[in-house]
């Protein structure tokens, strides 16, 4: 049993090394030197960290939203959260273009929270047995908010600006100084781990949660903060990253179940590994050019998701 985490850790370490050594610029990790250090510290390391943080945070946010709505077929990217964050950022950009970056992030997070709250309110009205209505509701809500964003951006001549958030997410623009906000997303995911038992209990149903003395509203609110902050920071820093928050929690739950205190670290590592592998692939396929990681994930993620859909459902 102890071999598995070790092997997984080793695989992640190899991916990190490969990521540090892969890129358009030619560097020699063994020889070192000023140029190598510059490329590493300014580009490769920030990019690798950004990918790891994004993957981990999105996967954990996926686990959280799945336990809030008690449905495995949703992710932070299919609940209208990212589009709402983009709407918030667009709003603050139009109203106060000179606002400092942290105010913009707060605005994006608050808008993401409002969007997630709307999604949760809709989901709570759906019949519990209709498992597939939840993801459909999420996709419709995402589509509506996304089209509002596009319309406003079109009117305000900001379409290109918005494109970087709603388009395929990618990490080629990440250099030192332009990714550090993702640490906050990582911290939010850490907060989810801190409250892991509460989310696990809430996913057993309101009745069980209240019976055990949990404030269901408090846990819901905490979950919304985690999901919204992660989505807002990821969307505004690197753009939309699909599927990570959907498939990684599913695969981990399949293997080790929903005891979130034990599984959240694995979910985080899995998300980081999957995203890094896809980003690496995007850098290698037509080197020295790049394919956005969002595109790679669109293919890889939809294949995994189809597999998850067609595999016999064990509950219900």
């Amino acid at each position: 049993m102890n071999a598995r985490p070790l092997a997984a850790g080793l695989a992640l370490a190899l991916l990190v090394l490969a990521s540090l050594g892969t890129g358009a610029a030619r560097i020699d990790l063994a020889a070192g030197g000023g140029w190598t250090t510059l490329v590493l510290m300014e580009s490769r390391l920030p990019r690798t960290l950004a990918v790891l943080l994004t993957g981990a945070a999105l996967a954990v946010a996926g686990t959280v939203i799945q336990s809030l709505v008690r449905n495995r077929f949703v992710g932070p990217d299919t609940a209208g959260t990212g589009e709402s964050a983009a709407l918030g950022l667009l709003g603050i950009t139009l109203l106060a273009p000179a606002a400092p970056i942290w105010i913009k992030m707060v605005a994006a997070s608050l808008a993401a929270m409002a969007g997630t709250a709307l999604f949760l309110a809709i989901v709570r009205r759906l019949p519990v047995r209709e498992v597939m209505l939840v993801p459909i509701a999420g996709l419709v809500l995402s589509g509506i908010i996304g089209s509002v964003v596009t319309w406003i951006a079109w009117e305000a001549d900001l379409l290109q600006f918005v494109g970087t958030w709603l388009g395929s997410g990618e990490f080629s623009g990440v250099i030192a100084g332009r990714y550090e906000l993702l640490w906050i997303a990582g911290a939010a995911a850490g907060l989810a781990w801190f409250a892991a038992d509460r989310f696990a209990i809430l996913s057993l149903g309101d009745g069980v949660a209240i019976g055990l003395g949990l404030s269901t509203r408090g846990v819901m609110r905490l979950g919304m903060v985690v999901v919204s902050v992660v989505s807002a920071l990821v969307v505004t820093t690197v753009g939309m990253i699909p599927f990570v928050g959907l498939v990684v929690p599913n695969i981990v739950a399949r293997i080790m179940g929903d005891n979130l205190r034990a599984s959240i670290p694995v979910v985080a590592a899995g998300g980081a590994g999957l995203l890094l592998a896809c980003d690496l692939l995007g850098r290698i396929v037509r080197h020295p050019y790049e394919i956005p990681v969002g595109t790679i994930l669109g293919i890889a993620g939809s294949v995994i998701f189809l597999w998850l859909l067609y595999r016999p459902v064990s509950h219900g």
């Binding site: 008690r70 038992d197 009745g207 069980v208 739950a253 929903d258 064990s314």
Partner: peptide, 22 residues
């Protein structure tokens, strides 16, 4: 409550363990 059928994938001992949460 009446609805004890949940989609959550917990082990039996983990579920019973949550009884001690309070």
């Amino acid at each position: 409550g009446q609805q004890t059928h949940v989609a959550s994938r917990l082990r039996v001992a983990e579920l019973v363990g949550f009884g001690r949460w309070p």
